[in-house]
């Protein structure tokens, strides 16, 4: 079993590099990383769980690592789901998120290499201040210049970039052929997702993205 699995992995890696070499933005733009916010940039799951616990002291709230499906609310008991839902729709929530450990350093490293980092995030339509709060958060955590790179969209398949770092298991939309390569930000609920995988503490970001950047721009 080990042989074929290794071969498959090698074949996948070769295909990823080939995609970068044939990318339509090759020669036009620096290596461009579309950076999902909730998960890779903000410690969203941890924050929601902690905030739900804080507001509901007697309630059992599952830990982030116990969720193995993207659609977390559907797998929770009704009272826990309602409590989390209330937290998620609270005005101001997205302004006070904590940062994902290692994200800031990784993003600084990418910028230092001359890569473009473009935050690419879906604003929750159930939270009335989410979109503006996400921009405020980026400005306070990073800078206005970087906040002004944000793309807030319900359909990431229409955004241009070489890669997208995202914790969603499968990114779908109206475009069946996005130009980016989905680089999976590791989480319990995306273990079945295909693609290069970045560790949840960002420790291997260069190991994963470096060769792709080289193939995209060499």
């Amino acid at each position: 079993m080990t042989g074929p699995a290794v071969l498959t992995r090698a074949a996948s890696e070769a295909a990823w590099l080939e995609r970068m070499r044939n990318h339509p933005m090759r020669g036009l733009m620096p290596f461009t990383v579309l950076m999902d916010m909730d998960g890779p940039t903000t410690h969203w799951y941890r924050y929601i769980v902690d905030e739900t616990k804080r507001r509901n002291p007697g309630l059992h709230v599952h830990e982030p690592h116990e969720h193995t499906s993207w659609k977390m609310l559907s797998e929770l008991p009704a009272d826990e789901a309602a409590a989390m839902n209330e937290v998620m729709s609270s005005p101001g929530l997205y302004r006070t998120m904590t940062a994902t450990p290692g994200a800031k350093e990784a993003i600084a490293g990418m910028l230092e290499l001359g890569w473009l980092v473009r935050f690419c995030s879906t604003a929750s339509l159930d939270n009335p201040t989410c979109a503006s709060d996400k921009l405020v958060w980026l400005e306070e955590e990073y800078s206005r210049d970087l906040a002004k790179t944000a793309i807030l969209t319900g359909d990431k398949t229409f955004a241009l970039g070489h890669v997208i770092v995202d914790d969603k298991d499968k990114i779908t939309g109206d475009n069946p052929n996005p130009v980016w390569l989905h680089t999976v930000f590791d989480a319990p609920y995306n273990q079945g997702a295909q693609g290069p995988r970045i560790a949840a503490d960002w420790s291997n970001w260069y190991e994963v993205l470096g060769p792709l950047a080289e193939a995209a721009t060499a």
Binding site: R118, A123, A131, K148, T149, A150, I151, L152, T153, G154, D155, F158, A159, L160, G161, N175, V179
Partner: peptide
């Protein structure tokens, strides 16, 4: 989509 850079939208 809200973006500061429409050249990045397909």
């Amino acid at each position: 989509t809200l973006t500061f850079d429409k050249t990045m939208c397909m």
